[in-house]
Amino acid sequence: TFELKGKVGKVVKIAEDHYLVEVEGDKWIAYSDEKLSLGDRVMVVDVDGLKLKAKRIP
């Protein structure tokens, strides 16, 4: 999973306390310091076990 750092994905679902992000065809649980919206493009900035930390990108 460490190779996911720096990869770009898309928010495909918003849950109460996390997001579901699709990166290279796989879906991952993600969290972010900022509020994300459905369809936002994100970059993986860190990997915490099986969770990704994501940041919105333009």
Rank of each mutant, 00 (worst) to 15 (best):
K51E: 06
V44G: 01
I57H: 08
V12W: 08
M43A: 05
E34G: 08
E34Q: 08
D17M: 10
R56C: 04
I57K: 03
T1F: 15
L38R: 08
D33S: 08
S32F: 02
L50A: 10
V45I: 11
V47A: 07
W28K: 01
L38S: 06
V21A: 04
K53V: 02
K53F: 12
L50H: 11
L20K: 06
D33A: 09
D33L: 09
L4C: 14
Y19H: 02
A15N: 13
P58C: 13
K7Q: 06
K53P: 01
R41T: 13
K10V: 11
K5R: 06
R41G: 10
T1L: 14
G9S: 02
V44N: 01
K27R: 12
K51N: 07
D40S: 06
G39L: 11
V21K: 00
D46A: 05
V45C: 08
I29P: 09
D40A: 07
D17P: 11
V12S: 06
W28V: 02
L52G: 01
F2K: 15
G25E: 06
G6S: 02
G6L: 01
W28F: 07
Y31D: 09
L20R: 04
V45G: 03
G9H: 01
Y19S: 04
V8N: 07
I57D: 06
E34Y: 05
L20A: 05
R56N: 03
Y19T: 05
R41H: 14
K35I: 12
L38E: 08
S32T: 05
V21G: 00
R56H: 05
L4S: 04
L52C: 03
K35R: 14
K10N: 11
G49T: 04
D26Y: 15
D26Q: 14
K5S: 10
D26R: 14
L20W: 13
S32I: 08
G6H: 02
L50T: 09
H18D: 11
D48V: 14
D26H: 14
R41A: 13
Y31P: 01
E24G: 05
E16A: 12
I14W: 09
V45M: 06
Y31E: 09
A15L: 13
P58I: 09
K27I: 09
G25V: 04
Y19D: 01
K51V: 13
D26I: 14
K5W: 15
Y31G: 07
V23Q: 01
G9C: 07
L36K: 00
D40I: 05
K27W: 10
E16Q: 11
E24D: 07
M43H: 04
P58G: 12
D48M: 12
S32G: 04
E22G: 03
L38T: 08
E16R: 13
E16Y: 13
I29E: 12
A54V: 15
S32E: 01
V11E: 00
K55S: 06
V45T: 09
L36E: 00
M43I: 13
S32D: 02
D17A: 10
K27N: 09
V47R: 06
V45F: 03
D40T: 06
K53M: 05
A15F: 13
V47T: 07
G25P: 03
E24H: 05
D46I: 02
V44L: 03
E3N: 03
K27A: 09
L36N: 01
K51F: 07
V23W: 01
G39Q: 09
R41E: 14
A15H: 13
D48F: 13
V8K: 08
E16N: 13
G39Y: 13
D48I: 15
M43F: 05
M43Q: 09
A54F: 09
G49D: 07
I29Q: 14
V42D: 00
V12P: 00
A15G: 09
G6C: 07
H18T: 09
G6R: 01
A30L: 04
R56A: 06
V42G: 00
K27H: 08
V45R: 01
V42R: 00
D48T: 11
L50E: 08
V11A: 02
G49R: 05
V8Q: 10
D33E: 10
L52W: 02
E3V: 02
K27P: 08
V47I: 07
I29Y: 14
G9Y: 02
P58K: 07
V45K: 02
K53I: 03
L52F: 03
D46K: 03
D17K: 09
K51P: 02
K7W: 03
P58T: 12
S32A: 14
V11C: 12
V23F: 05
K55E: 12
D33G: 07
V23G: 02
V23H: 02
W28A: 02
K35Y: 09
A54W: 09
A30N: 01
Y19F: 07
T1C: 15
K53W: 10
E34N: 07
K7D: 04
L36F: 05
K13P: 00
S32V: 11
E24N: 06
V12I: 10
D48S: 08
K13E: 11
K13N: 11
G39P: 01
S32W: 01
I14T: 11
R56Q: 05
P58L: 11
E34L: 04
E3A: 03
G39H: 13
D26L: 14
Y19K: 01
L20E: 08
R56S: 05
V12E: 05
G49V: 05
Y19M: 08
G49F: 05
V44D: 00
E22Q: 07
I57W: 10
L4W: 03
D33F: 08
Y19N: 02
V21C: 05
V44C: 03
K7A: 06
D17N: 11
V12Y: 09
K35F: 10
V8M: 11
K51L: 10
L52D: 00
D46C: 04
K7R: 05
H18R: 08
D17F: 11
E24P: 01
G39K: 07
V47H: 08
I29W: 12
V11K: 00
K27F: 10
D26N: 14
K35D: 09
D17S: 11
A54S: 03
V42C: 07
G49K: 05
D46V: 03
A30P: 00
E24Q: 06
E22K: 08
V11L: 04
A30K: 00
F2G: 15
Y19V: 06
L52A: 02
V23L: 14
E34I: 04
